[in-house]
Design a protein around this nucleic acid. Structure first.
Lengths: 116, 116
DNA sequence: GCATATAGTATCAAAAAAGATACTGTAACC
DNA sequence: GGTTACAGTATCTTTTTTGATACTATATGC
């Protein structure tokens, strides 16, 4: 299959240079669960693991752990472990995640508009 | 696996009601290619099929067709066929897609910020 | 003494998404 | 008369993502 490389695309279409890289953004906030998790942590504040689990319909323990770990690795979420039994772990949106508020508002407006 | 249903989540956490449904939004603009396609059609205007193909690094003909068809079905893109040989087909962002501009700007700002 | 809640991990299986490949028809160009 | 460009379709395979299941440890309540 003949596909275009990044370099070719930019050479032939220099005007593409001012578009931001969607694949990179998708790596951070793409997938089935990340936007839901971020939305809750950003707008509803810090949550515990099982709290999130109960707030997100259909998410499994495995996926929630995976996604939270990925978000943590990308600096969008912090994880605070309390030395208690039974365990207590809190997840909080970082400033970088809070900066996504504008995007979430835009999405919300777009969804609510529902005219087009 | 015990997961929460939509109804349970809302009953236990009524404050979730004001969050917009990310899964529904993801159906429209999620996946590997849709955001790139929309970004180009919204900010760079109408494009022909092979033009898009050359502008999007790594996309295959198959995927580009699929995604454009899905976007068309969801009312985000219109398809105009010219009765010429060789074939000429133009893709244009609808108003509903143009309304996503705000979201793209927010993403762009977020990406450019790159501090947190 | 048994069940429950907590926050996980490890392993395996299924489903969804993406990709490769081969094919179509016709006009223009060399 | 062979090659290229155009905009696809059909089929199959691979890869990625997501999900299911069983398991861990320990304090508290009944």
């Amino acid at each position: 299959m003949v596909t275009t490389s990044e370099a070719e695309a930019l050479e032939k279409h220099p005007e593409l240079a001012d578009l931001c890289p969607m694949p990179d953004i998708a790596k951070l906030i793409g997938g089935k669960w990340k936007l839901i998790i971020l939305q809750i942590l950003i707008f509803k504040g810090t949550k515990r693991f099982n709290e999130l689990r109960r707030m997100i319909p259909g998410v499994t323990q495995t996926m929630l752990t995976n996604q939270l770990r990925a978000l943590e690795a990308d600096g969008l979420v912090t994880r605070k472990i309390y030395a208690e039994v039974p365990p207590k772990v809190e997840y909080t949106a970082t400033q970088r995640a809070l900066d996504l508020e504008e995007m979430f508002h835009a999405m919300h407006n777009w969804w609510m508009r529902a005219d087009g």
